[in-house]
Design a protein around this nucleic acid. Structure first.
Length: 477
RNA sequence: GUCCCCAUCGUCUAGCCUGGCCAAGGACACCGGCCUUUCACGCCGGCAGCACCGGUUCAAAUCCGGUUGGGGACACCA
């Protein structure tokens, strides 16, 4: 196969959403797999809806995801002369014609057809007009064949046949001189030498029209691959009402690009029973043959789980700079370092997202521990004070505190009292973290350090005394 | 309405092309259990599906036809 050239052509009318990201991903993966070129093209011919912010937002998302492109971004709005040239070529060859029908009139006919349950289609009123032309603005229409059929050999769907009479004469240039989507796409794909068009299957109906345009313009046909769409939980097109759909929203929710990409690639594509892929494996194993044909439903639960798998295997040092902003956002002015590294290391196996990790790390940085009400009621009882004091004494006697020493200290306390370790561990856990569930206690104490551990144990003792002293605030049995 | 596409556990999917190895495998979620200083992880086990009808065949999740269901497209939007 010649050098593969693909493109991702978002229209900058909003943020990059999940569906678009997956289309971009499939193109990117296919291209990287074949060592080709991936082109970013901004389809901004609809001036009224396109914005520069959207262009930037899309670029930011692509960069965050790591879907780098080799050429572009090209803006269609900067290529107007090229489209004009192609329109004239078609006009002079009699493959396009001027249409003077008023948009309102067309809209009226269209609505009526839909109401009468008929297929809305241009009636060809201006198809055979010739000069002298009437005054007034005109659009340019493609003069399509009235009979025969156009066949799409789709790389994922197989052969799809369309009757040409179903295809009406689409407008290729608006009366304001701007090209329309179907035309601009073909001119761009043709001039940019695109070899593979991989896009959502909501485009299959556009494909025969585009094929006709490719032929009329004399460009070689690219290969087409229509991938199934992503649907929301109600089985309709994914949109805002299905919850977050912008890629950046997932960044803010603490997802890793690799985790999101992994989830997305498995929605509609598979490689045997394998679920977890690194970016490298995705590139190595991706192929269009293994893309499924049916639409998939976006499942946030599975995304979260897969993201967790990615968090788990990432080195702590790589995770540190990624969680840091989330911890800072909670109001803790901390810096990277050995301590944060250790925290991330014990947390990464239990956090599905960076947001969860930041939440779980919070107690390490709190000046004062707030005790979970239930936890305090159950474990911060008078008899714990004695345990805390013995621990404090033991801690004070340690020169250098190590995890192993902490463990034997705690086990020793339990043994002397002839109680199970858990009876000692839980009150201590609540005193140190505020909760009944936390990472391993020995590790927590090791990270907290001697001084901070002693301080928290003392504060917990004080808390117990004050709640016992408070009338009505006594712990009951 | 017309055209196009799709159809395996609740969800993502393997298997389908090249029928038998499938009393259908994996993952998420859910439910048990084990491990254990708690929670989580991990491990073990469970729940749950070939949309329906007919045909071809010794044999069909796999091939063919139809039905039903779902989705998408029908703009001087992309």
């Amino acid at each position: 196969m010649n050098q593969v050239r693909t493109r991702f052509p978002p229209s900058p009318t909003g943020f990059l959403h999940i569906g678009g990201a997956r289309t971009a991903l499939f193109n990117w993966l296919f291209t990287r797999h074949h060592g080709g070129k991936f082109i970013l093209r901004i389809e901004d011919t609809d001036v009224t809806r396109s914005t520069e912010e959207a262009v930037n937002a899309i670029i930011d998302s692509m960069q965050w995801l790591g879907l780098n492109w080799d050429e572009g971004p090209f803006l269609q709005s900067k290529r107007l002369a090229i489209y004009q040239e192609h329109v004239e070529k078609l006009l002079s060859r009699g493959k396009a014609y001027r249409c003077f029908c008023a948009p309102e009139e067309l809209e009226e006919k269209r609505k009526r057809a839909l109401q009468e349950k008929k297929k809305p289609k241009y009636d060809g009123k201006c198809r055979n007009l010739s000069s002298p032309y009437p005054d007034g603005p005109y659009a340019v229409r493609f003069k399509g064949p009235e009979e025969g059929r156009t066949v799409v050999e789709d790389l994922v769907k197989g052969r799809i046949v369309f009757e040409n009479e179903e295809l009406d004469d689409l407008i290729i240039q608006r009366s304001d001189g701007m090209p329309t989507y179907n035309f601009a796409v073909v001119v761009d794909d043709g001039t940019m030498g695109i070899t593979h068009v991989i896009r959502g299957d909501d485009h299959v109906n556009n494909t025969p029209r585009q094929i006709l345009l490719f032929r009329a313009l004399g460009y070689p046909l690219p290969h087409f691959a229509h991938v199934p769409m992503i649907l929301g939980s109600d089985r309709t097109r994914l949109s805002k009402r299905h919850g977050a759909e912008s890629v950046m929203a997932y960044k803010e929710m603490g997802y890793l690009p690799g985790g999101l990409l992994n989830y997305l690639v498995r929605l509609g594509w598979s490689f045997g029973d394998q679920e977890i892929f690194s970016i490298g494996e995705m590139i190595e194993k991706f192929s269009l043959e293994n893309v499924g044909k049916s639409a998939g439903i976006f499942n946030p639960e599975k995304l979260r789980s897969i993201n967790g798998d990615h968090v788990k295997v990432r080195e702590a040092s790589k995770l540190v700079p990624l969680v840091l902003p989330f911890i800072k956002a909670k109001g803790y002015d901390i810096v990277e370092g050995e301590k944060l590294n250790k925290i991330v290391d014990i947390l990464k196996g239990r956090s599905k997202t960076l947001v969860e990790m930041a939440d779980q790390a919070e107690f390490f940085f709190k000046e004062e521990i707030e005790y979970d009400e239930e936890a305090a009621k159950k474990f911060l009882r008078p008899e714990a004070i004695d345990v805390f004091e013995e621990l404090i004494e033991g801690l004070k006697g340690m020169e250098i505190m190590s995890e192993a020493e902490v463990e034997s200290l705690l086990r020793g306390v339990a043994e002397r009292r002839e109680i199970k370790l858990v009876k000692v561990a839980q009150p201590v856990r609540v005193a140190l973290t505020g909760f009944t569930a936390s990472p391993g206690l020995f590790e927590v104490i090791d990270i907290l350090g001697k001084a901070q551990t002693i301080k928290r144990l003392e504060e917990a003792s004080a808390f117990i005394r004050s709640s016992v002293a408070r009338p009505g605030g006594e712990n009951e049995d």
